[in-house]
Design a binder for these strands. Structure first.
Lengths: 342, 342
DNA sequence: CCTTAGCACTCTCATCGGTAGAGTGCTAAT
DNA sequence: ATTAGCACTCTACCGATGAGAGTGCTAAGG
């Protein structure tokens, strides 16, 4: 167990290191600690903190650097969560109410806002409906036997699919068919749509496609993750070397992103912080991930649709600000979702 | 004017440099040139090539490196365009016929294919219709006074927009309105839609949005550029240093990309190569751009819709292969466009 | 006149030793 | 328990040194 003074020193070391990105020495702390003790005392305490595994030593004669354990203790016990200024809150809120274009646009905006606020990379997944329902479908003749199927799902989620029919149909015929299918399947979930019987050949083709798309949406296979702030992340001094940047970029590649960051596997409420090698998926994740922390929050309308927001930064991160921003943003997004869901 | 032998030496130097990324010396060339002359002779010729501005010297005792002028001469006169193997052609073609989902998906795929083939970054703009026409519009009630406007434009281009009405309307009322507007404006261009008169209040709101979106599409403001292969580009040895990577990343940022690479300002036919400081937009482009070349091709159905493909790589690039890939891909995409346009 | 062998010259890169500076760990005194 | 003092260690920086690569020039040979 850490003494009061050790805790304060740990917090100070972390604070200084986060700001300066350089190992911090005992004198440094002694001077601006306000603890009224000498560097030697700090030194002894630091040695103890290192012994306990909260701090580390790059080499014999360098200052101390926090370890994973140090950061974790800081985040869980020492840190006080910052409140976002009312002004900052309003700015964010305002932006969301400006944007039109549905939930994908919100997620896109959220990634941008989050990256800017946290000065790191941000990932936001578009909300995934728990089980989507067909709101409306439309058939538009493009040419010959090619027809565009447009699906409107819950909350304005929009999908399109190209169909090829056996025969040629006029736009009027297609409209009639679409209307009939709307009457019959509007508001239905994929399960209900799948059990349809007594369909004409054309209706069969359309509904096959409809259920396929809806299943894909349900399975989350379609959910997009918006990524922003990559440059800010890579600007951090810990990734100054080219090969480290490349490693991180590989991680951020579309194909690896969701695998490396466990956006889905978290509680609906609250903010989760993954520090360095904590990452449960570290085996799949790449080496660069060891130097990173992730702050994850969920948002959504309970039982209807949900998504996740995350900030990815170096372990040396301003946790306090980042966490409160994620928390606030996930609140705003949830409100928006609830509002938009009738 | 260069002698035959000088040309061959220039081509050899470029070839070796492209492969090895290191300055090439006279011995190196002498040994594998097959010219049957000694290193000293090569040296003399190289000195002349340098005098003429085709080669450069990083420092007194290093091998030669091609200059912008050298590359340009190579691309315009010396290089023989490679033919893509029939197999490679089929692989590419096959992928495009696999993908469903319209032109945006094609552009996305093209970027991926191009990046992989050229081993550099690739940018592909989705095709922009010369002047888009309204194919179909749909109004879907989301809740209260919020309505989703879905627009289908030429060739399956799909746009959505959220509307807020003064009053609440049922889905039936909206459908009737949509049908009326479809009758009246289906197949019309933005210019015709703008001149509409005698609209009800609701129709006015809808058509305002419609023309706004269509104008945006026409202005190209909406056209998306798909970017792929960033990591491959950054893996090139010329960008090994972290700050250079950051510079390049800044360039590739969505906001700067289309400004730095003049995708629009090129002839409809043929492939354009911009080498290093040639770039007409170099002033806006960033320093990192000086070390880069861009190979640009256009594709599209004449007079209907067109887009552009580009490869961005270091000046030290396999021009021959890159150019022929761009050329081939632009052909494939054009065919697809023509086919898809009735 | 073109080619080429020979050679001095130049520049880079890696290595080495020396020094200054920062920060530690330990000891002994308070 | 705290702290001053001091030896110790490690890094970062600097300049010197030597090997290696490649050039430019000169003079000889076809």
């Amino acid at each position: 167990m850490l003494t009061e003074r050790q805790s304060r020193i740990l917090a100070l070391v972390i604070g200084e290191y986060v700001d300066g990105a350089e190992p911090v020495g005992s004198q440094h702390i002694a001077r601006r600690s306000g603890l009224g003790v000498s560097a030697a005392t700090i030194r002894n305490e630091m040695a103890e903190l290192e012994h306990e595994g909260y701090l580390d030593h790059p080499h014999t004669s360098s200052g101390r650097v926090p370890t994973d354990k140090g950061y974790r203790f800081y985040v869980e016990r020492l840190m006080r969560e910052e409140q976002l200024s009312w002004e900052a809150q309003q700015t964010i809120r305002h932006q969301f109410h400006q944007v039109e274009g549905g939930q994908d646009a919100w997620a896109h905006l959220a990634a941008s806002v989050l990256a800017r606020a946290a000065e790191n990379a941000a990932v936001v997944t578009a909300p995934r409906t728990a089980s989507c329902h067909l709101k409306h479908l439309e058939l538009v003749s493009l040419h010959d036997r090619t027809v565009l199927l447009v699906l409107v799902l819950d909350q304005g989620l929009l999908r399109q699919q190209l169909l090829t029919f056996e025969d040629v149909y006029t736009q009027e015929e297609l409209a009639t068919t679409a209307e009939r299918l709307n009457q019959r399947f509007g508001g239905k979930s994929v399960r209900e749509a799948e059990q349809a019987v007594e369909l004409s050949a054309v209706e069969e083709v359309v509904m096959d496609s409809v259920t396929e798309v809806m299943r894909a949406v349900d399975a989350g296979g379609y959910d997009e993750a918006y990524l922003d702030g990559v440059r800010q992340l890579l600007s951090q001094p810990e990734f100054a070397r080219g090969d480290q940047m490349l490693g991180l970029l590989e991680l951020l590649d579309e194909r690896n992103l969701t695998r490396a960051i466990p956006l889905r596997s978290l509680a609906q409420e609250g903010v989760t912080v993954i520090i360095g090698a904590d990452n449960p998926r570290l085996d799949v994740a790449n080496e660069a991930m060891r130097a990173c922390s992730v702050v994850i929050g969920a948002y959504g309308a309970p039982g209807v649709a949900s998504g996740a927001l995350a900030v990815l930064g170096p372990m040396r991160m301003r946790y306090s600000r980042t966490i409160s921003t994620v928390r606030y943003l996930s609140g705003v997004m949830s409100e928006l979702m609830v509002e938009s869901y009738e």
